[in-house]
Structure formats: structure tokens, C-alpha cells
Nucleic acid binder design. Structure first.
Lengths: 143, 143
DNA sequence: TATCAAAAGAGAATTATTATCATTTAAAAA
DNA sequence: TTTTTAAATGATAATAATTCTCTTTTGATA
């Protein structure tokens, strides 16, 4: 994604376009493996060498608030971010502490159909997160 | 669950039975709404007034390692624990920052069937976590 | 270009969690 | 029952992710 596209996204969400926001959103979009704050700061170091960590956190909060990115995390991890907004799932590998996207339209449809039919009384469903905890067959064999 | 049942669980897992472990496991089992470490310490204060936080963390780690409890968390939260081990799901309410169990056997079966048929190449599935992000209709209406 | 609310910056503060290491203890063996 | 010892606990310091406070700067509108 180009910087101009990133700028458009910010404008479209009613967010002021600042160099810091452009850099951070671009980072999350282009660092595609669920980067941590540290990885984001590392990535934007060239264009934003002296950015304050407080700013990074505040910008990420604003991007999540405005649905431009999502937070992802596991049961044993610091916060990570994801710029993929279309419905998808995640595989978490505890052995390597990594997160991978898992695209499975059949599964997405299955869930959609299920929760389309089945209401949960008193609850408005805003999102459904499915996370597979897995092990690489290769890694597992080594054990 | 009685303290004797808790002791049996520890013995069965090959864990030494200590008063601290009994108290903590009993706490997680009986505090049924996904307690935090703080809530656990609070609960066991009567029987363990001077327990070290380090001990609490170490005991919880040991209990998770031995599959006596599970870790649960949300995208915006400190670690919580869950003593329910049978397959179930969770509803997370960001508004109140609470987690609720969601039992839906039909959904559990659906996922089981889906992943029974559909292998993910190179991956051994160890667990599947499904978390609904929701809002109480009541709370939502107030907004 | 002037204005001003919003954003960024600096750095201290907070807080959940982990590490270190000395002391104690559960449970197996004698 | 006593002894033994690896394992568990405790006290406290250390770490590190995140947030807070307050000042300065800046993007966007008039």
C-alpha cells in the first residue's frame, strides 16, 4: 500500500493526517506478520527516528478505535497489530511464539450461518475471533 | 469443588500437594468468572495471608502446564484464568471488560466436524479458541 | 496567515510479570 | 519415625510494556 493510499484511509476516517500516523499505519500494513510495537518502531525508524513511544501507542489506539487496524494477541504475549480487516482467522504457534493468518472462507461462512440462525439473548455480536493453537509438524517432530 | 477434590487433581497430575497450590486451584475453580491474579490473591487471603506473588504466578504456571486450568485473555487485558476445561467458548464485553463463558455444543460440533474434514497442511491443531466480542443490548442502548 | 483544537514529545510513573537466590517443605526412602 | 533431597515457597529486586502528565508543536479550517 502506498503512502497516498494510507493518507486517504486516515482522511476517510476523519483523522488528521500526520507524518507519524502515516508512517505507523504504513508500517502495520506492510509489516504483514502481526508486528509488535517494538517492530513497528523499528520499521519506522528511518522516517521517524525520534518518535516518542507514547505517540506510537496513542496512534495505534487511534487506528484501532477507527477500525483501520485490529489488535491481536495470544494468551502469552504482548500486544500485536493486524492490518487485515476482512474476516479471517489466526494460527498461534506457542513453540515459536508467532501468529499466522489463516484464511478459510468455508469456516467464515460456517460461523456466519451459525450465528445468523442462532442469536445469543441480550448480546449484540460485534466480532468473532477464532484462534487455532497449533504446532508445526516439523517442529513437533524434533521434540 | 472441595479441597479434597482439588488435592486429588494435583496428585493425579503428579504435582506436590502444597497448601498454596490447593488454595490457588480452589480459588480458580470457585471464582468462576475468569479471575485475574489480583482477584485470586484476594480470594485466598484468608487461608494464605502472606503468600508471595511470585509463588502465585509460579503455581498458576504449573497449573496451566499441567492442564488443570487454562489462560484466557482478550486483546486488551491482563491475564485471566479459567478452570473450565471442557470445550467451550467465550464472550468478551469490551464495555465492561468482562469475560463470560459461552456454551454452544452445536458450535463446538460444527468446528470439530470442520477441522475433522479439513486438515491444515503441516499443522497439528492443539486447541481452537473462539471468542465473541459483544455488547449487552442493555448497555448498548444506553449509549 | 491566524487560530486553535488536536496531536506529538519527553520522560516519569505505573504495574504486571519475571528473575534471583536463600529458606522451607512435601514426600519418598531408610 | 526420621532422614534426605529435589522441589516449592518467599522476599525482594529487576524488567518491560504501557500509561500519565504536562509542555510544545502542528494540521486543517476560516
Amino acid at each position: 500500500m502506498s503512502l497516498d493510499e494510507v493518507r486517504d484511509k486516515l482522511i476517510h476516517s476523519g483523522l488528521k493526517v500526520t507524518p507519524q500516523r502515516v508512517a505507523i499505519l504504513e508500517a502495520v500494513v506492510n509489516l504483514n506478520n502481526h508486528p509488535t510495537v517494538e517492530q513497528i518502531i523499528d520499521y519506522i525508524r528511518i522516517s521517524q527516528p525520534n518518535i516518542s513511544t507514547a505517540t506510537v501507542y496513542k496512534v495505534l489506539d487511534a487506528l484501532v478505535e477507527n477500525a483501520l487496524i485490529k489488535r491481536v494477541n495470544t494468551e502469552r504475549d504482548i500486544t500485536r497489530y493486524d492490518a487485515i480487516l476482512e474476516p479471517h482467522h489466526h494460527i498461534y504457534y506457542p513453540d515459536s511464539n508467532t501468529i499466522e493468518d489463516y484464511i478459510d472462507h468455508e469456516l467464515t461462512d460456517l460461523l456466519k450461518t451459525h450465528f445468523g440462525k442462532k442469536e445469543i439473548p441480550g448480546v449484540i455480536i460485534e466480532d468473532i475471533k477464532l484462534q487455532i493453537v497449533g504446532r508445526c509438524k516439523k517442529t513437533a517432530a524434533e521434540k
